[in-house]
């Protein structure tokens, strides 16, 4: 009886917390498809706000994808070999390097963005292009890729596989491409999902680094929250959810599968 009571109490509490997280999202989604949010859903359902957002902000969505995939490409090309090097080399220096590249997770994006502006703000061409935002995103997401790949390396005995391939005559480059990378695929995928998700939603850095001609989706969102009617802002948020939630679900499934092993 008492156990039953405790169970119900905990369940209600957990449901309340879930409601706190989910209800606002549902409000936002419903507001995005309501003719007039103030009058409520009875005013009718419409996609007009979504189309309006598309007209106004399609460019930001496109740029966000461009930057997210460019970030992914850079973190893959730079991060995967680096993870291999850090794992293989090991020791104190590798830990220090890992510590340094992880700093951007701890240091607020605002500070990193300021640092980038103070250092490279003078290079006008660079400052005005989307590549400037890209640098920020690369620095911010790199540790996730490197750590994700290193996590896999520590579970599959990569050193012995490397030695095995070497004993069969494969050169270091061939070993890396033919044996190391294929066996790091789970970590690379998990890291890639993380990088794309984070890049698509990144605001703290991007707000400082963007220019009027280089607006990403979260910048557009902030813009719409400040200046558009609630329905438009909600519709925009809805589009963001549609983009980001599949990624989150994929990430969660991935984590579950890893845990299930």
């Amino acid at each position: 009886m008492r156990d039953r009571l405790i169970f119900t109490g905990q369940l209600l509490f957990t449901l309340t917390v879930a409601a706190f997280l989910v209800v606002p999202a549902i409000l936002s989604i419903s507001a995005g498809v309501t003719v007039n949010y103030f009058r409520g859903i009875s005013s009718g359902v419409t996609l007009q706000w979504v189309f309006q957002v598309w007209d106004l902000y399609a460019g930001t969505i496109l740029l966000s994808f461009v930057i997210a995939f460019a970030t992914l490409a850079v973190t893959l090309l730079v991060g995967v070999p680096a993870a291999y090097a850090l794992h293989t080399h090991g020791g104190r220096w590798s830990r220090i390097v890992e510590e340094v590249i992880t700093l951007p997770i701890a240091i607020p994006g605002l500070a990193i963005a300021l640092a980038l502006i103070l250092t490279y703000g003078g290079f006008g061409e660079f400052r005005r292009s989307w590549l400037f935002i890209l640098t920020g995103h690369v620095i911010f997401t790199m540790p996730f890729m490197v750590r994700s790949v290193m996590a896999v390396f520590s579970t599959v005995d990569i050193k012995t596989l490397d030695e095995g391939a070497a004993s069969l005559g494969a050169s270091p480059v061939r070993r890396f491409l033919g044996v190391i990378v294929p066996n790091a695929v789970p970590g690379i995928l998990a890291g890639a999902l993380m990088v794309v998700t984070l890049s698509l939603g990144e605001f703290n850095l991007t707000w400082m680094l963007h220019t009027p001609s280089t607006k990403t989706l979260p910048i557009g969102l902030a813009d719409s929250y400040a200046s558009m009617r609630l329905e438009v802002a909600s519709a925009y948020t809805l589009i963001f959810f549609v983009m980001i939630i599949p990624l989150l679900v994929a990430m969660q499934m991935f984590a579950d599968r890893e845990q299930g092993r």
Partner: peptide, 20 residues
Amino acid sequence: VPIEKRNVGMVFQSYALFPN
């Protein structure tokens, strides 16, 4: 000479078979 140029065959304790 590094191992890949020694033409040795090696069987590792954990076998080091490529899972991919």
